[in-house]
Design a protein around this nucleic acid. Structure first.
Lengths: 208, 208
DNA sequence: AATATTAGTTATCAACATATTACTATCAAG
DNA sequence: CTTGATAGTAATATGTTGATAACTAATATT
């Protein structure tokens, strides 16, 4: 028994380690023994900080949900025009995913055993809020004349979401979070260009 | 010991059951005991048909990869024009996913332990081929004048892939594969409309 | 009908994961 | 310096899972 950290510090370490392992091998494969070993502790030490293993995931889900919500709030707080606000929202979310690359894993995680506690509810709620923010911003962009008036805001939001999803899938397959910020801005611009009333600007920019 | 099926029939049942369970609870949570119970067998009975559990997943991955490839081949075999061929490719793939809703789970599955055998290689290869087919079709559509000439075929393919991904995520969260065919055609049309040289047709169709 | 093949069962193992209990050593406050 | 609280350990109970060995019975072939 060499060092002994404070409970808050240790909990922080445990959650971060669990997140890292979740991205590496998948959330369902992460064991308390692995987390402990990674931190140089014994397995029961984990249970000094969480009564049940699921409580670790619950804490993580809460943290991730908060990060998602923060980004939404940040984009709304900025006094940007609708179109720029929309871009900030999407690129900000990509940044959150890049910083927490295990996030997509939790979004598609199944609930445990008999549905006792739905661990990933926080994340689902946050993503629901993100989608609502997308729709809201698309609507505002239409109102501001940035997008053509006949555009369905829900469908447009789905397509914009698709830009994120497409990048996330490539990240998960390649295990490289860096591609999010590398390709994200360009692809988002291309997607949004499809919604402009007149496509002169974007079209001219990319054509020979 | 009531009935006794042939090996091929039983293997088929085992794989189908494993696939169903994989969609329900996630591939990593599926145990040999579950599969056996679902079929009214004992757990070791599974090992009369597969030496290792991973062999089940390998067989499934091979099957899914084949389904993906078949759809690609089918779209190319059709004598359709580039744009219709592209639509057939995408909607056909959505159909494959709808029929095998666990497919996305396998795409993001991590490889086992020490990387002994990469089970999901067949699927990754097939998806690589699918992406190549997307790019090829986009290029053809540009050549045929369906898309504007400055369009980057790789980026366009990524966005079209995003339509699929966006729908797949909603399927995974809602556990409802039906939305793929319900919303797929409409969203695909909306996405492709963003690539047309003149947007009159699609724009007029939706704007009042 | 006799026989060989093999799908399936029973019993069992080893490995691993969650969790509990009792003990110990560290740290901070009095 | 003493002491109370607690982070951490050792040991262990309990359950699940992948896998093997030996046996049994259904099926097909001769």
């Amino acid at each position: 028994m060499r060092i002994r950290k404070s409970a808050v510090d240790r909990k922080c370490e445990i959650e971060q380690t669990a997140l890292d392992l979740a991205f590496k091998i998948g959330p369902s494969q992460v064991s308390t023994g692995m987390i402990a070993k990674e931190l140089g502790l014994t397995q029961p030490a984990i249970y000094r900080h969480y009564p049940k293993k699921d409580d670790i995931w619950a804490a993580i889900a809460l943290h991730l949900g908060t990060r998602i919500d923060e980004n939404i709030a940040l984009s709304f707080a900025s006094g940007l025009a609708p179109l720029d606000r929309l871009k900030k929202l999407v690129l900000g979310h990509l940044h959150v995913v890049k910083e927490n690359p295990a996030l997509p894993d939790f979004m598609v995680l199944r609930d445990k055993t008999n549905g006792h506690i739905v661990v990933q509810d926080s994340i689902h709620d946050a993503m629901e809020a993100f989608r609502a923010a997308l729709v809201s911003n698309v609507k505002a962009a239409i109102g501001a004349g940035h997008f053509y008036s006949g555009l369905d805001e829900n469908d447009a939001a789905t397509l914009i979401f698709g830009v994120i999803q497409s990048l996330v899938l490539r990240m998960m397959v390649t295990r490289n979070p860096a591609i999010l910020m590398k390709d994200g801005p360009r692809l988002l611009d291309l997607q949004l260009a499809g919604f402009t009333p007149t496509r002169e600007t974007s079209r001219e920019a990319v054509s020979d």
